[in-house]
Nucleic acid binder design. Structure first.
Lengths: 185, 185
DNA sequence: AATTAGATAGACCGATTGATCTACTGTCAA
DNA sequence: TTGACAGTAGATCAATCGGTCTATCTAATT
């Protein structure tokens, strides 16, 4: 049998799910109820709701997902980058898709001092490094600028698909990603 | 002297400013205070906070801004489209920039029945028509798909610039917009 | 001058927010 | 057995939320 995860893990899992489906403004009560955890445990482990939300973003493993998708696409940098947009098309086509967790946190949390902002920035910087590395291997003349373009495309897909998923923005972006890759022919 | 606008206009102005700088979760009290309007007037004119927020989006005139920017760029469709991204670069470089009002509303308001969602959709559909018209004049072989690409770029710029404004995402997107325009050579 | 509609001021409501607190339970090690 | 500790359960707190209410005032219409 599988041992039930500890309160800390249960809190993270519940918060991860609820903050995505309901937004970061879910009540603490709802998270506690779904995690089946005592109120005190939340403040013991994370100091408060802000700390929990930030830790959800930090431990989300979003970068690993991108890495895995690219690794499954093989060795060719071109195929690896394009595979990201194929995956985005799958993700944004699901009914449960509700936008990018990081962008949503950035736009929803008004307070500039909220610890979540640092996690969002760290994530996007990490993604930038990831893409720049691929472009470097591909022989792109300006991997940094090219990665900026890819990030705009990714964020654009995730933002636009919330309102107009039927437009299949990931496919539209895929074609433009080919243009980015063509820069380093 | 200029006559003071009526309560309805003052409410819209205050809500427009506060929902952008503080997010749509600003309290009704803050809006009433800044508008210097009685509580009752809000419910008389808009039925409630939801109605006010939706009307702010509907009456924002965002499409007119895009039209104006393009008109000031002259007649050439290519120049008109690229001018949009030059303007986006200016907007996203301002310290007061806090992201796209429509995307923020879409991501922040969890309730699918919120009247704001219809306004967001109407705005983006209108923008799509606007861009498709330019591409048609430009001789683009698939104006609808091309407009989808431009919208992804625009949303991407506005989403990405919140976290990484120094990357100048509008300039990165501008180069890709040229690729979109080149499709209809 | 009388009537009426719109605006103002502010008390008030129930619900919910995030957070703190005390008291109790179970487990494991010394 | 004792003590330490993490977790549970739940009362409780002040603050805030959106919304309704009554009462008063004002300005335009009749």
């Amino acid at each position: 049998m599988t041992t039930r995860p500890g309160p800390r893990e249960r809190l993270l899992d519940a918060a991860r799910e609820l903050t995505y489906s309901q937004g970061v403004h879910v009540g603490v009560d709802a998270i506690l109820k779904q995690a089946d955890v005592a109120r005190r445990s939340l403040y013991q482990h994370f100091g408060g709701k802000d700390g929990l939300v930030a830790e959800v973003l930090r431990s989300d493993g979003g970068l690993d997902r991108y890495r895995r998708v690219m690794d499954e696409a093989g060795d060719d940098p071109r195929e690896r980058v394009l595979a990201v947009f194929d995956e985005l098309d799958r993700i944004t086509s699901q009914p449960s898709f509700r936008g990018c967790r990081y962008t949503a946190a950035e736009l929803t949390l008004t307070d500039p001092g909220h610890p979540a902002h640092a996690e969002v920035r760290a994530f996007k910087e990490g993604l930038h490094r990831l893409m720049a590395a691929e472009l470097t291997r591909h022989g792109h003349p300006a991997p940094g600028a090219g990665a900026d373009q890819l990030l705009v495309l990714i964020d654009g897909v995730l933002a636009h698909a919330v309102t107009r998923p039927d437009a299949r923005p990931a496919l539209a972006a895929r074609a433009l990603a080919e243009a980015v890759l063509a820069s380093g022919a």
